[in-house]
């Protein structure tokens, strides 16, 4: 299945296996969850949530500013 992944304003399509979670995508993208927030279809979502085909996933980097 395919999901849309967005990071720092850059969006791309990611191919992943059925049953993959948000955490799986972050791991594949080598992103440390400690450095930001994960949103699924615009809402803050638990990283163990399973993805569906066509979902939009956004990682919001928070490790700057203050």
């Amino acid at each position: 299945m395919k999901v849309i992944f967005s990071l720092d304003g850059k969006t791309k399509e990611v191919e992943t296996k059925t049953g993959a979670t948000l955490a799986d995508i972050l791991k594949a993208e080598k992103i440390n969850l400690q450095t930001g927030l994960i949103k699924l279809n615009g809402k803050l979502t638990h990283p163990s949530t399973e993805l569906k085909d066509g979902d939009t996933l956004e990682f919001v980097n928070i490790i700057y500013g203050g």
Binding site: Q34, T35, L37, L44, V60, I62, I63, Y64, G65
Partner: peptide, 24 residues
């Protein structure tokens, strides 16, 4: 933690600015 502050602001729908300082 820093992450918890960001989560709190998001869940409370508080206005906050996320941008890296140009001089960092």
């Amino acid at each position: 933690t820093e992450r918890e502050c960001a989560i709190y602001c998001t869940l409370r729908d508080l206005p906050f600015h996320l941008q890296e300082c140009p001089y960092s």
